[in-house]
Design a protein around this nucleic acid. Structure first.
Lengths: 339, 339
DNA sequence: TCGTTTTTGTGGAGCGCTCCAAATCACATC
DNA sequence: GATGTGATTTGGAGCGCTCCACAAAAACGA
């Protein structure tokens, strides 16, 4: 066993698996087994290894593990806007399913890694992630070049070839919003549309339900708009063009906040003079200032579903592409009232 | 799909640097040079390598690069609450400085990786990050076991040994808030305190400035409180206990939002009956519904400063620990008015 | 007692890169 | 041509793990 010199830990060098093995009086392979929590290691040896790890302050190198094992046990998530908080539930749902199986979650931001990687997906592939969740409107240059299991979270304008889709039923959500408002006696109901595929479906739900009730659709806003200020502008437009409007359905909570600002600026009280409903059930919606009625898109469930879809596809890469829809739910708070 | 056209590459295997080298008719070392954008590669060879990379759809393995190069060219950030949006500017500032130098940013979440890594910092060390930014209240088990350059972003209750600190001057920010309010003629000014070291300093600034002006301090809220609902409760308390109160300074924008809700529920209009000022200049503050006057803590500058501190420490690990304070700035919007 | 399983533990061969010293090339100069 | 010089290019030796086939030890059965 007169090994080449890595037996004794030199000063300044980070301890590696051999240092731990030597310190614990076992082989490096046994240390590896302990690290991965493998069964079939005797309690005595396991304890010895753990003690050595502690004593040497050893931290395994994920780079080496990834390289040798040919898997990073990491799921990559492509996210593009930290301000729109819907992703928080998504990440939590993903994490909840994945962590017990030893998978980590890594977030890639298209705007951030623009210079370093050609696309966020390329960056994740360089990380050798075991799966990818796309939580933005995908672009074609995002399509995985090689077959990494991929799922698109949320309804999107562009279908990613080979990717499963997990989303909430945005069309149903749109109907739910109108149903609630109409049920309260509102007839002049405006809709603030947002950017992207999900918002388009919400608008479809709105239109379908309005028409089904013989009501005239009133829409403002449009492609690419999602911010509070977009919501403010669109609501101003809606309110000024339609003096008889008594209710507004905004495509997301952030725009609903903007709409609330517009209502205030036009002297319309919520909910007395104007009912307002959002979408997402973000932390914003529960704020005391608004107590916003909203549609809960169940992002946690979407995240959990995405995790399961990824796991299934790892098992069977050839399975048919699936679309899973989570049922959204109306959350009534204080921003809506009878007409 | 089919074959990319290169004969030596076996089906199913991901191409590696040797495949690219063979395809381009050069050595693997030359490919490595091109990958890292090294100078001194002839244009012809560089083009040949790039063409081969494109043709083979090659994506370098970051695990291998990290392992071989003994550096990940990644900076880790420890974050704990995605809801409190102050971190957005921090990340942007960090990124802006680091990306041109080829560093990436990886976010570690204490609540997420609880089971996989002992602490978020351990997880980052396993990643072999070249530096760590702590953007939460640190805990002792977060102290880096080995000397990875570390900087604490924001003022914190606990000092991390060996770590530089970059933060905005929270005490000055607190004074600025009071100065603005007092300048408008307010005398009964309440403060909603928040959790953590930064909030404590903001409160100190508030107290010092109030006392300096011979005004009585009125505080509510307390340790660990940062949410909208905490702000709502504290504001209710303040308002009910002090009927003459004409202004409130909240330790962050989120709590200010809560305070606005409380004011509404107590029939106090903002800014006519009650002036309100927040802290952070988050996206929330610019919302049309609030148009919140706030203190801008310059998180982008804090992030840029943290990046520079990290870079300096990489150059000279033995340099003295520094604290850098960024000067905060009052942003006047519509939530404050003369008493 | 001695096989025969079953459970544990081991060394060797990579994984795909970077780094380094040394080899080769291109071209100017003598 | 021979030689020198700097600009390019190259092979070899790891980096720290995992995986695998096999060895050793322990447990069991006859």
């Amino acid at each position: 066993m007169g090994n080449n010199g890595w037996m004794t830990q030199e000063a300044g060098r980070r301890p590696n698996i051999y240092d731990v093995a030597t310190a614990a009086g076992v082989s490096k392979s046994l240390v590896s087994l302990v690290l991965r929590g493998a069964p079939g290691v005797s309690p005595a040896r396991r304890a010895a290894v753990e003690e050595a790890i502690e004593r040497l302050n050893y931290r395994p190198s994920r780079a080496a593990a990834t390289l040798a094992g040919n898997t990073s046990r990491t799921i990559g998530v492509v996210l593009d806007d930290y301000r729109n908080l819907w992703f928080v539930g998504l990440l939590a749902g993903l994490h909840e399913q994945l962590a017990p199986l030893g998978f980590r979650v890594a977030v890639a931001d298209p705007s951030f890694n623009a210079h370093l990687d050609r696309t966020p997906v390329d960056g994740l592939i360089s990380l050798r992630v075991d799966g990818i969740v796309i939580a933005t409107e995908p672009t074609e240059d995002m399509f995985p070049g090689l077959d990494v299991p991929t799922v698109v979270a949320g309804n999107r304008d562009l279908a990613v070839p080979g990717a499963d889709v997990v989303a909430n039923d945005d069309v149903l959500g749109g109907r739910l919003a109108v149903e609630h408002l109409a049920g309260l006696g509102h007839r002049a109901i405006g809709h603030i549309t947002g950017g992207g595929g999900a918002a388009r479906l919400r608008a479809q739900g709105y239109e379908a339900e309005m028409r089904g009730r013989g009501l005239r659709t009133l829409m403002a806003g449009g492609h690419g708009q999602t911010t509070e200020s977009d919501g403010y502008q669109a609501a101003l437009h809606l309110l000024d063009e339609n003096p008889t409007l008594t209710a507004i359905f905004a495509a997301n909570d952030t725009m609903a906040l903007g709409a609330a600002g517009a209502a205030r600026d036009r002297g319309r009280r919520i909910p007395e003079d104007l009912s307002l409903i959002g979408y997402d059930n973000s932390p914003l919606a529960s704020a005391n200032l608004l107590r916003l009625t909203t549609i809960d898109g169940k992002n946690g469930e979407v995240g959990a579903g995405a995790a399961k879809a990824l796991l299934d596809r790892m098992k069977d890469p050839a399975a048919d592409v699936r679309t899973e829809l989570v049922t959204p739910e109306l959350v009534v708070r204080a921003s809506t009232a009878p007409a």
